[in-house]
Every structure is written in C-alpha cells, then in structure tokens.
Design a protein around this nucleic acid. Structure first.
Lengths: 229, 229
DNA sequence: AATATTTGGTGTATTTTAAACAATAACCTT
DNA sequence: AAGGTTATTGTTTAAAATACACCAAATATT
C-alpha cells in the first residue's frame, strides 16, 4: 500500500492572528462567524487551504480577504491538530500571526464572517474552536520575537515618535519601560532614521519623528550585532 | 456549503527529528526509505496521522516505533505545506523534534524503513522530500530552546560530568565555551545535584558526577529566575 | 618507584551591560 | 505672561559577562 492510498477524509486550514496597535492596547482582528459551527461566535479569521495552494499562500489570502493588504509581515507559529478540535470533521489548522497598521485599511468581513472588529488582546472573550489557545500561542511567540527582531515597526505608521514606539513595546511585553533607557537602547542600535520632522497638532511640545531604516539594519547585522530590546 | 463538504483529497503526516548525543557530535536518527517515493534515500522518520489520533500522539507513535521509548522530550516546531513537497499527493507535514539518550535503545527500523542510523547533524547528506529544510528548522529551534530551558540533560545519561555537559552545549550551539565560566554559571543556578560519586574507568583524574534535579529547578523558577546558558 | 600524561577543578580582575534616577526645554492654551 | 503637558537628555551604581592560568588527582609509562 503506498502512502497516498491511505489518505482519509480530512482537511487543513489556516488561522490568522492579525495584530494591530492603536496607540494604547495591542489589538487582534476577530470575525464573527456567519455559519455553523459556532455561528455568531467571535473567531480568528481562517479558511481551508485550497488544493493547489501553499499553506503560507492560504494565510496571505485570508489576510487579504479581510484587510485588502498584501506583503505584510506574516509568520507561521505552529499547527493545532487535536482530533476533536473541529466539531464537524478532522481539520488540523496552521496558525499564523501577522502585523498590520490599523490605519492602512478598514476591515471588510469576508464571505465567512458577519462582521470583523478589533478586540483588545487583554480582554478577548471565549472564541470558537480552540482559537483562544491559538491566540495565546501566537501572542507568546510575538512577545519573544519582537524583542529580537525589528518587527514592532510593522505595527506603527511609517513615521513615529520614540514615545509611540515605547508604548508599543510596553503594550506587547505587558511591562513598563524606563524612558531614558529605552531611548538610549533603541538609538544606540542606529537602525532609526531621524526625519528632522516633528509631530503636528499636539497641544504640547511636539516630538521628533523617526523611521525604521532597512539599510541601516542590514549594516547593523553585517557588523555582527543582534537586535535586542 | 458547509466547511466539511469542501474537504479534498489530502493528508497530513508528522516527521520527527530525533536528536542524540554521543559525547562528540550532535546526532540525528535517520531512516532509509524502503518504499517509493525516494526509495533508498535517507529521510526523517515520519508517518501519516491516523484519523483518530492527535498530531502529538502521532509523533510519539513514530518515535516509539523506532526507539521503543515513551515519555521522551518531544516538541512541535511547525508545519510544512508547500503544494509540491510530496510527489504523490497533497501532504502537509508537522515537524517535531525529540531528545533521546542514545544508550537507552537500539534503533529498530520501522515498517517503512530499511534501516535506521545515527548521522552527525553537521554532515547530513541530501534527504528525501523537504527533510533537509525540516531538519534545519528543528535545529534552529533546538539551539534557541536549549539556552533558555533545561532540556539539554535529556540528551545525557542520568549521571554526567560537567565536562560532558559542556561538550553537549558546545556541540549544539556550535561554539566553544570557557570551562570556568560555564561551570560557574551552571552551578550558580543550583539545579544540579552533586552525587558525591566519581567517574570510573578513565585514565586520568576522574570527574564528579551530577544529576539534573527537577525539584531544585521548580524552586529555581518559583524564585523568579530563568534558566540561561 | 619515579615520571609523564591527561583531564578535573578553581578565583580574580576587567569590561560590558543593565538599572535607577530628575531636571530643563519646547510647544500649546488660556 | 503664566501654566500645562510632553520631549529630551546624562550620570551613577549594580550586575553580568568575559578573559585568563595554575595546581590536583588519577592512570600509564619507563
């Protein structure tokens, strides 16, 4: 018997934990299911993987259906494959998380969803399937990764202030950071470009705007350094 | 159309990167495939997941078939799901790695294998499927994990010397460590139990034997410390 | 028995990194 | 002009990482 003869009725899906940041809380984009099972429940956006589709591509597709965005930061976390995780059949799912700028789009509910909304990660209710567990895994992975790779910038607009950046890290890491030490550390890595611009429209001293500089980061790596917050 | 109606011909498997250590090199247990595709090629041990089997259970089963071992350290890494990764159909695979003591068993080739042998991780040849890529991912993950969790001990016999432990870390991390600093660091964490025994049968000054002490490690964590090599 | 060989075991000084901490500057509002 | 609010900056201290060399204890050799 060859391996392919023993295929059985089964499927695989991708689920995507889409993270966003609004300046205060870390957010996750959830959909409200429009069909059973778990109709009406909040869930992670996901879909079955098409026969001729790489799993990474499927995750990109789910993201684009909901946000219209392409080319955003997307990373696989792991597979979830308990026998009874899906009430209607054997479906294992591959979990991904992605980082988007909330101002870049308005969520448009995909075919499988009644609505799509941002939820604060800290106060997410009970979700469909094993999605709370998936969210937790993705969050854990994000927390680790954001400290050793310059991916936090994906959640901010192209131009940002150091205080905004600090608040982002504080939201993700769920900790408070010392302002002076944070700025020292970030600036010493020399991966930010000082735009010589300042904030407009604030009722106080405006802050300088910075940009993440990919070329500087490449040089930073070439010199043997590692990103570390 | 419900989700389960759209199931298509597909399957999922698990592949297991079984790591071992012989005092010198980090090893991986490979099987030689006994059936097409890739008949005769070296590959990671793996199998299709049974319909009523959790994916973690499938990985444990593959491990036990080959080694006879149960209750071994086993961790999922990620899924691999490129469309054409399997020449005979759509098969995504979930990669696991496990850590075993090479002296605990003799590899017994499973049904799907002609033979099973330890290979040095550094000199692994071209493997079947995308198994080189899977091995690489698991190795990367092991390197990260072994520094922040006390899992290296899983590769050593219950009683070991500090030099053996150091050589293990050097093999995994592919770096040289300073003897005095290494011993200072490990012993200062206070998770090893000094057995008051010494090596026998060596042609030089015998070293003291130690044991990893789970209770001490639990206490270590409770006091807010984190394992770090 | 003496000597050689091999690996085990130990401490200190230096450098680097992390942490704690507060005053002045710049802009806006009233 | 005064008051409110956030931005910006440096030093001191503690902790951690790194670099580094000699003596001890066993077996093997002569």
């Amino acid at each position: 018997m060859s391996e392919v003869d023993s295929f059985f009725k089964s499927a695989f899906s991708v689920d995507n934990v889409i993270f966003g940041f609004d300046g205060g809380d870390l957010k996750v984009l959830l959909i409200q299911r429009g069909a059973p099972p778990y109709k009406g429940k909040w869930a992670l956006p996901g879909d079955l993987v098409y026969p001729n589709e790489d799993i990474d591509t499927a995750a990109e597709r789910v993201l684009e259906q909901l946000t219209g965005l392409k080319g955003v930061y997307l990373e696989q976390v792991k597979a979830f494959g308990a026998v009874n995780r899906h009430p209607l059949g054997r479906v294992i799912t591959i979990a991904y998380y992605s980082l988007v700028k909330t101002n870049d789009f308005q969520p448009t509910p995909a075919s499988f969803a009644q609505s799509a909304q941002w939820h604060s990660v800290g106060t997410v209710e009970e979700l469909a399937f094993d999605h709370n567990q998936i969210l937790q895994s993705c969050l854990t992975q994000l927390k680790q990764k954001v400290r050793i790779a310059p991916i936090g910038f994906e959640l901010l607009p192209p131009k940002f202030t150091l205080t905004e950046l600090q608040h982002l890290y504080e939201a993700i890491l769920e900790t408070e950071l010392d302002k002076r030490n944070f700025r020292k550390k970030i600036l010493s890595m020399n991966v930010l470009h000082d735009l010589d611009e300042i904030q407009a429209g604030v009722a106080h001293r405006p802050a300088k705007l910075y940009q993440f500089d990919q070329e500087r980061y490449t040089r930073f790596l070439e010199e043997g350094y590692t990103f570390d917050v």
